[in-house]
């Protein structure tokens, strides 16, 4: 198959919304926001007290605070869509058969949607009191 590549800066001829352009913008805007969200996440979870301190009580301490729930849900959505759209770029580059490319891309977005829904539900419906010990470290929340 002969591939014809248009002059890179030639104006777009197709009509309608330019989704590739919005995707391109999204990668850059979400990337900029993710720097703040991911670096903050790593500083609080990995740098401050270290991996050794991460357990259910640690998560309960963060997710009884709406600030960290909003932080984490925002990070989840931005990173999953950024990562999935980046993976789509890569499958578009390497998948040679059209049906392979389509199947991979549809799978990517299905996984993306499933994990965004799962993660959002987990973070927003989190209940620290399912831990019987929670009365000890969250006496005002769990009685």
């Amino acid at each position: 198959m002969e591939i014809v590549i248009e002059t890179p800066n030639s104006p777009r001829k197709r009509k309608g919304a330019n989704w590739e352009k919005y995707g391109w913008m999204y990668m850059r805007i979400s990337g900029a926001v993710l720097i703040v969200l991911i670096f903050g996440h790593l500083i609080v979870n990995l740098w401050d007290k270290g991996v050794g301190a991460i357990d259910f009580a640690f998560v309960a301490g963060k997710w009884t605070n709406p600030f960290w729930q909003v932080w984490d849900v925002l990070m989840l959505w931005l990173a999953m869509i950024h990562g999935t759209n980046g993976m789509r770029t890569i499958t578009n580059d390497y998948a040679e058969k059209e049906w392979v490319r389509k199947t991979l891309n549809v799978s990517l977005w299905v996984v993306c949607a499933a994990l965004i829904i799962l993660g959002t539900l987990v973070a927003t419906t989190f209940d620290p009191c399912i831990d019987p010990n929670a009365v000890n470290y969250l006496p005002t929340v769990c009685k």
Partner: peptide, 21 residues
Amino acid sequence: VAIFFFLLVHILDTSLVRVDP
């Protein structure tokens, strides 16, 4: 790509906080 696959696993492991401490 590496970060993407870690993120998939990381969402799943974190989801256990909703199931069993």
